[in-house]
Computed example of a mutant assay.
Amino acid sequence: MKAVRIQSYGDEPAVQDIAMPEPGEGEVLMQVQAAALNPLDVQLQAGYLADWFPLAFPFTLGTDFAGVVKRIGNRVTAFREGDAIIARPDPVRGGGFAEYASVPASACVPLPTPLTPDEGACIPTAGGTAWFALLESAKLKTGETVLIHAGAGGVGTFGVQFAKAAGARVLATASGDGVAFARELGADRVIDYRSEDFAALGEPVDVVLDLIGGDTQARSFGLLRPGGRLVSTVSPPDAEKAKAKGVSASMFALDLSGDRLAQLVNAVVNNGVRVVIDCKVPLAGFPDAWARQRSGHTRAKTVLLL
Score class of each variant (00 low, 15 high):
M1S: 11
G10L: 08
P13A: 10
G26Q: 06
Q31A: 15
A35T: 01
P39V: 02
A46E: 14
L49K: 08
W52K: 08
K70C: 10
R75I: 04
A87H: 12
D90I: 02
A98M: 07
C108H: 02
P110C: 05
P110D: 09
T116P: 03
D118M: 03
C122A: 15
G127A: 06
A130M: 09
L135G: 04
K139E: 14
K139T: 10
G143N: 05
L147V: 09
T157G: 05
V160G: 04
Q161M: 07
F162R: 09
A165V: 08
A166W: 08
A166M: 02
G167R: 04
V170G: 06
E184H: 05
L185M: 15
D192T: 10
D197H: 10
G202C: 07
E203L: 11
D206K: 12
G213S: 06
D215E: 15
T216K: 02
A218I: 12
G228T: 02
V231T: 14
A239S: 13
K241M: 12
V247L: 13
S248A: 15
F252K: 03
S257E: 11
G258S: 12
G258R: 11
L264Y: 08
V265T: 07
N271A: 09
V273L: 15
F286M: 08
P287W: 01
W290V: 03
R292Y: 05
R294Y: 09
A300K: 05
T302L: 15
